[in-house]
Every structure is written in structure tokens, then in C-alpha cells.
Nucleic acid binder design. Sequence first.
DNA 1: CCAAAAGTGTTGACAATACACCCATGA
DNA 2: TCATGGGTGTATTGTCAACACTTTTGG
Lengths: 268, 268
Amino acid sequence: MSAAAAGRGDGGGDPDAARAGGTGTGPAPYDPYAFEPFAVTVDLAVLTVRGGVLHVLLIRRGQEPYAGAWALPGGFVLPRESAETAARRELAEETGLAPSLVDSLHLEQLRTYSEPDRDPRMRVVSVAFTALVPDMPEPAAEGGGDADRARWVPVGEVTQPAFDHARILADARERVGSKLEYTCLATAFCPPEFTLGELRAVYETVWGTALDRPNFRRKVLATPGFVEAVPGAARLTGGRGKPAALYRAGPATALHPPLLRPTEGPAR
Amino acid sequence: MSAAAAGRGDGGGDPDAARAGGTGTGPAPYDPYAFEPFAVTVDLAVLTVRGGVLHVLLIRRGQEPYAGAWALPGGFVLPRESAETAARRELAEETGLAPSLVDSLHLEQLRTYSEPDRDPRMRVVSVAFTALVPDMPEPAAEGGGDADRARWVPVGEVTQPAFDHARILADARERVGSKLEYTCLATAFCPPEFTLGELRAVYETVWGTALDRPNFRRKVLATPGFVEAVPGAARLTGGRGKPAALYRAGPATALHPPLLRPTEGPAR
DNA sequence: CCAAAAGTGTTGACAATACACCCATGA
DNA sequence: TCATGGGTGTATTGTCAACACTTTTGG
């Protein structure tokens, strides 16, 4: 164990100690190059619901390692960027979305992956984010950046992605599934105006369970600020049937009481 | 924007691109020193309940910046360590706890703080963790490491801590408060054997609300695997009153249905 | 008219609350 | 015996799940 960490004795990541560790370049204080450097990146699990199936945005790798494998989009955090800023920038570059739209998207920090050997070449610490977006065309159709190598892939068909991205994707699915229970996050998967049937499809797709339509409707409408009716608007959804009323996302973010998954866990 | 990130085009934090960015040291691939380095640290919000008040473990800083201010314990992630391993190591060093005990503690990754100027000296990306520990003596009494400068401080009395540690502490309180609702985490604040009154005190302390004793008891006992009775054992808690039965933490981790805070949020 | 989807009503099971009440112990 | 905290019982209230039913559209 190096003296840099063992004897630091200062709260909060104190770079003073850097002079005593790593490659040992001398006693100069605050020497940013004294340690073997860590690369800091972001990885993005961008999820959407297309045709009743949860999809994730993946990019085909062109280089070793994992050449030809699918990987989550992501990239380096630049010297003057926060991780979230880097995530939004990468999202814009790799999907071809308008920056104004990217700025308003729901982006949530998932967790940070820091196993020493998660990248075989060097030490890479990656801050993972989850982005929830409404259904949109294939990234290639919009062009720009790396979008030509990006594709929406059903999460069930993702096999052997690069690095530890299978784990990140699993964590993202878990997080989103449980966040639907106690937040109003589901509207992030929907276009600006949506029917309650479409909102219900989000829950059913992410959870993989069917929900009782009348009860779901009551629950959503009984939660103040979850959705707001668009007066007079209606739209046909399945081609047939009664046109459904349209709603917008409301100002609420929390869901009290929560909307729990049915038949989940060892209920008492 | 540097070409390193803009043109990366490879999923998953690809160090190949490092040669094109930062200090520009040449075309050698995988050059770990090509970028202005990021320091990666961990910060720990170690919480406990002492005498009905939530406390956090803080360390008095000895050096500038923020000399004399309180700071969360933490330190550098070593080259061959994951962030969680680093967090456990720092926890052992700064509290003087036995490593075996530290290994079994509940440690949860909170989030990563990466604002470019959160440390005035250099770029420090910090992975924050929350640890929940039972009430224990002052760190100084156990000695070892930096424990002589560490103290338990009531969270209400923490003013102007170093760096962005006020934000980290606030996020930790928020996270722990909501985790009590839908997980069995409260037992992590208790000693190995505890009474239901002590468990209830954890909820009341963290939430700052009173709970109905009989209903709390029924709720906990009705959740399978939350607590397990210690047969025949009993202990006096307040000096007076009927001795209370003792319980151990059970194998369950989730709480279905959740134990919601009373009068919380805009209930429907 | 039929199928399909939206929307409304009703009912029974069960959970949460708010208490009243009893038990065991120290002072 | 009184104060204090543990433990039990119970009635009211409300919420949720299940399902029957009506409405509105396209074929």
C-alpha cells in the first residue's frame, strides 16, 4: 500500500499526497502527473420503448478489444467537463439528436464502475448514466457523428457486449424498473402528448407484466401532477377502437403512494 | 472540443483516442499520460444513530484549502483497487475498526461528483459512498490511522464542511431516508441484537417523525425475513419498563410493501 | 353487427391507522 | 403504586385488485 493513501490524513481526496505515490516524480506539491493516471469516461445506457419491446442504443465496435461487438455509447470526460456534461455531449454526437432536445432529456447517473481490469489496456473508471427517450428513428437516419454505427437493439437480444457493459445494462434495467414504481419517470419514454394506453405500455414493457387497464387509469389520474389532460384532444391508437384522450407529463416527480409491480417479491 | 472525444467512435471509454488529446505527447497508442490526468478518490458519508440523533463521521482538516474545516473521510483510489475496495480501506484506516468488521458493513455507492472545480487545486473525480454503522465509541478512543482527528458530529451541526461535502452529506441523508422505506436497511444501524424499540428509533431519527409503536411492530414482524427473534433473550432499554425481546437482522433485503414515511409528499 | 380499444362502476379482500388496554420492571 | 416502555387487541377507514359493463370507433 502506498504512503499516498495510507498516510493521507486529510479529508476529501487531497492531492497533496500525490507527491508521495505512484511513479514518484519528486517532492513538488500538487504534481498532477505523480500518479499512474486514471482515465475517466462516461457510458450511456439509452433506453426506449419501440413496439412493446425495450430497446437500448448500441454501437458496433471497430477496433480491438471486442472488435465487432456491441458496446454502449460513451467517451472521455474532457478536462473542463463534468461527467453529466460529457454524457449529454456524447449522447448528442452518437444519436444525432438536436442539442436542445438532449439538454432537456432525463439523464440519471446510474453508478460508477471502477474494477481495475474492466478495460484490458489501462485503468478506466467509468461513470454510467441512463437516458430515457421516446421512440425515435434509427440513429443512422438522422446522420451525424457516430450515428452511422449506432443501432437500437432489443435488450433481450444483447449478447456478449464489450467490456462490462452487460452488467451496466442490467443495472440500468433494474434501476429503471424500480424507478417506475415510485417516480413519474415513465412519461420520459413517451412523446410530448400520449394516451394512457401508451403510458401503460411503458410499464408493461419495462416490467414484463400485464396491468389492469381500469385500475392503472385510476391510479395515474389520482396522482396529482403525474399527467395533465390536453383538452379536447384525442387520437386513435390501434387503428380501431375508441379514440383515446391525450395527456402531457405533469410537474410531479414522485409517486405517492408508489405504483408497485404486481406479484413482485415475497409479499407478506 | 478535443478530437479525442469528438471523434472517438468506439463504445466504452476507448483509450485509443488518448493519443489525440490533452498534452499531445505523440502518436503512441494507449499512452496513459497523454491526457491531463484525473485524480480519482472516494468520499465516505459514514452515518450512525447515537442517542436519537443522526451523526456523521467527520475529520478535521489540517491543511489548506479548508484548513480547520470538517470534511468527510476519504482518499485516493490506488492503482489496483476498485472504488469500493478503496472505500473499505479508508474506512478501516480512519475509524480504527477491525478489517473483518469493515468487510461485513453495508457500504453503498451514492454517486460520483465530477464538477471541474470541486477541488481548487486539480481535477478530482470522487466516488461517494454511504456506510451505515451501529453506534460505536468515538474513533479516537480506538486509535489507529487518522482516527485521532475523526469525530462523530450530529448532522444538524455540520456547517460549512470542506469542498462539496455538504452536498454529498445531503445526498446521503436523502438516500438513506428513502432506502429505509423500501429496504431492510435499518438493521444496519443496529447492533447484532436489538429490540424493536431500537429499530423504531432508527426510523424516527432518520425521518424525524414519530411512528405508532404497535403498528410499527406488526409491520416489521409481518415482513418475512426482516428480523428474526432471538429465543428467550430480553433486555431493558430505557432503564425502566418491561424488558424487550431481542431480534437479529433477517435475510430479507427488500421491503414489500414499503414502509412509507407518514404525512410525506402530496399524498393523493 | 362485430371486434377492438377507451372509459366507468361496483364489490370484496385486505392493509393501515388510531386507539384502548394489559404486562413487566425500576424507583 | 406510579411511571415507563413492551406487547396485544380491535374497530374504522381506506386502498387496491378483479371484473362486469358502457361507449366509440373501423371493418
